[in-house]
């Protein structure tokens, strides 16, 4: 209601759960009705939806480096996303590239991860100091770490060699799981 402040603003958490269909039928109907009558909460939901769309579009444009799962990648492939995949064995290397037709690049790092509770990745970009990606998602059952590099950045780079180290982290400290080398041709 224009100019009328909301007397019972919905919590951010409730808006997110509503949008994602996590509420029961009665709660969802209650929020449906509140949102249809409340400009304030409805505008906040609109902002959330716009932000969610921004996340989706940024990924579709290849503007994100992000760790994902095998099931997620398979879903994208089923939707017709043009994927290029590289699988790198433990302590191995791969010759790789990216073409204008590729919509997404997926790198699969193979590693024994069954007893691992946390994985960090040390990235050695050419000519730059090493960077650490802490606590990355991984799949212990499949023995894989999957990530999609930032395509926009990769397309702008010349041919180069990129080295990664997978590190297992637990109470006892850190141990190297494996090394992976990408020989990228521009």
């Amino acid at each position: 209601m224009n100019g009328t402040p909301c007397r019972a603003p919905l919590e951010e958490r409730a808006l997110v759960e509503y949008w994602l269909g996590e509420l029961g039928e009665a709660d969802e109907a209650r929020l449906d009705e509140h949102l249809l009558g409340c400009a304030h909460c409805s505008a906040r939901l609109g902002e959330l939806v716009a932000l969610a769309g921004g996340i989706r579009d940024a990924f579709r444009q290849g503007a994100l480096q992000v760790f994902v799962s095998d099931a997620f990648v398979k879903r994208l492939a089923a939707q017709g996303v043009r994927l290029r995949e590289y699988r790198v064995p433990r302590n191995g290397s791969v010759n790789c590239t990216v073409t204008p037709e590729d919509e997404l690049l997926v790198s699969r790092l193979e590693a024994p991860l069954a007893d691992v509770s946390r994985v960090d990745i040390v990235v050695h970009p050419p000519g730059l100091p090493a960077e650490v990606r802490q606590d990355v998602p991984f799949d212990p059952a499949r023995g894989e770490v999957l990530f999609t590099p930032n395509l926009a950045q990769l397309r702008a780079m010349p041919s180069h060699r990129l080295r990664l180290e997978l590190i297992a982290v637990d109470d006892a400290g850190e141990r190297l799981i494996g090394e992976y080398t990408f020989n990228h041709t521009a």
């Binding site: 996340i55 992000v66 606590d135």
Partner: peptide, 8 residues
């Protein structure tokens, strides 16, 4: 990384 993955 984990937040980024979950949000995406």
């Amino acid at each position: 990384q984990r937040e980024r993955s979950v949000l995406l």
